[in-house]
């Protein structure tokens, strides 16, 4: 008995002194291998009286299990310690730069236009492409701007000939859409528009707009307000306020301009918003009954609203760009910022 207890103590001492996994493997062979003391004790069982054999055998097996458990414990500890050493040797400087693939960028106007389109798509609007050159009929007459109308002068139009113009707004698409579809109509139409403005920090002769049009039974001014309020909040932020002011457009009546909380001062009043706390975002209104008549939609049965916004202006506010020319210079140092 004492022999077993002594054996256990010596074995544990060996195991505890192991310095490496390799050494531990050697110790394991020594303690539990064919030539080990335990093995010879097992072999000597046959020399005992038959009634003592099972008792003693059980004890030797128990000892063997204890040694095996001890070996496993120490093995785990040694493995962990050795792995830690290994890890430490593999330490890297994580502040070194990452290896990146070169990537390009969409133009900031595309980015903003996509954001705007997606908001309207989420509200069930279809996106329709626009023409750059239109007949004077679509650009003016059908939109309730006859030749004698003073508004026709203010448009600063580029002419191709007497009959054709470069579109001065995306509004002509209203007419094209209403001529070819029946209500309910719910579309947005982005496009390029042209005005005879000399180039400066706030003007380019080519710029982008997006038109919106809804025509159905029972469309009201409240629907117009609600739609554009949702749009402005989704585009700029839930906390902003919208303000609708009466305005004039030949093709809508009543007409309005929508202002939003000034993005510079947050409504407190500053130079940018001329101390009003608001910045103009877009023009809108109820489709003029004459426009509906022009496309053969009965204004006593249907009503609608339309709106139009300048993409450059929104992008400039959104990104804090102060010179519109940057959009068309395409300096890659500018393009990669967005």
């Amino acid at each position: 008995m004492i022999e077993l207890e002594d054996l256990k103590q010596r074995a544990f001492e060996f195991i505890n002194n192991a310095k490496s996994l390799k050494e531990l493997d050697e110790i394991k062979i020594k303690l539990l291998g064919k030539k080990s003391e335990i093995n010879s004790l097992m072999k000597s069982l046959k020399d005992l009286a038959p009634n003592e054999r099972p008792i003693f055998g059980e004890k030797i097996n128990a000892l063997r299990n204890q040694i095996e458990n001890k070996l496993n414990d120490v093995k785990n500890n040694l493995f962990e310690a050795e792995q830690n050493l290994c890890f430490q040797a593999e330490k890297i400087d994580i502040t070194l730069p990452g290896v990146t693939n070169k990537i390009g960028n969409l133009h900031p106007l595309t980015i903003v236009l996509n954001d705007i389109q997606n908001i309207f798509i989420s509200m069930g609007y279809e996106v329709i492409d626009a023409h750059d050159v239109e007949t004077a009929y679509y650009n003016f007459d059908a939109l309730n701007i006859p030749k004698s109308h003073p508004a026709r002068d203010e448009q600063d139009t580029f002419y191709i000939n007497d009959e054709q113009v470069l579109v001065t707004a995306t509004s002509p698409m209203q007419i094209r859409v209403m001529e070819t579809r029946k209500p309910p109509i719910k579309i947005v139409s982005p496009g390029r528009v042209y005005r005879t403005d000399e180039i400066d920090a706030t003007h380019t002769p080519v710029f982008h707009q997006m038109e919106g049009l809804v025509v159905d039974k029972n469309i009201t001014m409240c629907d117009l307000k609600g739609t554009l309020d949702v749009f402005a909040k989704k585009l700029i932020g839930e906390n902003i306020k919208t303000r609708f002011r009466p305005h004039y457009f030949p093709f809508t009546e009543p007409s309005a301009e929508m202002d939003v909380t000034c993005f510079v001062c947050g409504g407190e009043g500053c130079k940018t918003c001329k101390n009003t706390g608001f910045i103009e975002l877009l023009g809108c209104g109820m489709v003029h009954p004459k426009v509906l008549e022009n496309v053969g939609i009965d204004p006593s049965e249907f009503s609608g609203f339309a709106f139009g916004m300048g993409i450059e202006r929104i992008a400039m506010q959104h990104f804090g760009i102060t010179d519109i020319r940057l959009f068309y210079e395409n300096d890659v140092r500018f393009l990669r910022q967005f």
């Binding site: 279809e126 809804v214 609708f244 009466p246």
Partner: peptide
């Protein structure tokens, strides 16, 4: 009428039209 009733006094609603939107 709306100018002097107040553009700001009428509520925000959304059209009931059930159009399906999207890009071509």
């Amino acid at each position: 009428i709306l100018r002097f009733y107040g553009y700001d006094k009428i509520p925000f609603t959304l059209p009931a039209s059930k159009n399906i939107g999207g890009k071509s």
